[in-house]
């Protein structure tokens, strides 16, 4: 930069030479930027690109029983799930679970996020920390927590029975209900964070302005608060959706084997049946599903983000 300034030519021929110099400086800058990117790119290469490439390659191999991998190039691993209604159902269930968890999580997190985003309290920082504190414990621990709470003799069932509302315990674990409840709670901190960061355009003054123009509290919410928080809601939904359809711990632990989603299927195929090529193919299918969702998301944000 200093170099450039020293060389600024007299005003008479600025037009041409400045352009040349700027371009030269631009090139130099770009090279510096690229150099700075190298460590990160290398890290990404080792931790992401290689494994991904390995996984994709693996998906074209053939799996035989007992973990034998036949090196070849076949589409069988793809044709099998794509022509099998069972895997269509699993994929659909996965998608449905993602949407349900996403929607519920966004619904329950929205009031909290809205409160935190608008709070002017001096404890706001503390409150945000409290809201995301569950992230300090692992999802496994929290899932076990939910198993205890939702189990046949768990907190929920015993209090409902104690109040005489039910005679037989409700089945809240080992099925999709349990998985959904667990996932919604586990992803709430992510949803809250995503929303708070996505509420950029929302501010108190806009709501006050709407109020002063005659809008009732309800109208302020529907006409100003909600539309302005849509980008945040959408981001949170996408994040939770992606996390939900890729997580396997909670479906595994709270699903009791009855919840079959792509992630548990991949896990079973790798660790139970040792069929890595097939598991890899399912992973690629899951990736494609993400791709589709992200494409839709980008379309949507472009529309509502303005």
């Amino acid at each position: 930069m200093t170099l450039l300034q020293n060389k600024i030519p007299p005003a008479t021929h600025r037009g041409i030479e400045e352009g040349v110099l700027e371009r030269a400086a631009g090139k130099r800058n770009r090279r510096t930027y690229l150099a700075l990117l190298i460590p990160g790119l290398l890290g990404l290469l080792v931790s992401f690109v290689f494994p991904l490439a390995y996984m994709i390659r693996m998906s074209f191999n053939k799996g035989a029983p007992d973990g034998v991998i036949i090196e070849t190039f076949t589409l069988e691993t793809y044709i099998q799930p794509l022509t099998d209604p069972y895997y269509w159902r699993v994929t659909l269930d996965t998608f449905q679970m993602g949407v349900t968890v996403g929607v519920l999580c966004v619904l329950v997190s929205y009031p909290v996020a809205l409160f935190l985003a608008r709070s002017t309290s001096k404890y706001r920082g503390l409150l945000i920390a409290v809201a995301i504190a569950p992230l300090l414990t692992s999802a496994v621990v929290r899932t076990y927590g939910w198993m205890v709470i939702l189990g046949t003799n768990g907190l929920v069932n015993s209090s409902l029975e104690g109040m005489g509302l039910i005679t037989e315990p409700l089945k809240l674990t080992n099925n999709m209900t349990g998985v959904t409840i667990g996932l919604v709670e586990i992803f709430m901190p992510y949803a809250i964070l995503a929303m708070i960061s996505g509420f950029g355009r929302l501010n108190r003054q806009l709501e006050e302005a709407a109020g002063s123009l005659g809008a009732s509290k309800f109208k302020v919410f529907t006409r100003v608060t909600l539309p302005l928080s849509l980008p945040g809601l959408l981001t949170a939904f996408l994040l939770v959706f992606v996390l939900a359809i890729s997580t396997f711990i909670t479906p595994r632990l709270l699903g009791g084997g009855s919840v079959q989603v792509l992630a548990t299927e991949i896990y079973d195929q790798t660790t139970g049946l040792l069929n890595w090529p097939f598991a890899a193919a399912l992973s690629v299918i899951l990736l494609v599903l993400f791709g589709v969702i992200i494409a839709v998301y980008q379309r949507l944000t472009k529309k509502i983000g303005g």
Partner: peptide, 17 residues
């Protein structure tokens, strides 16, 4: 919302959407 006053804020507070 029942006062019927018009307010102009320092930051204008125009609805961005």
């Amino acid at each position: 919302n029942k006062r019927g006053m018009g307010m102009v804020f320092q930051s204008y507070a125009l609805f961005p959407h």
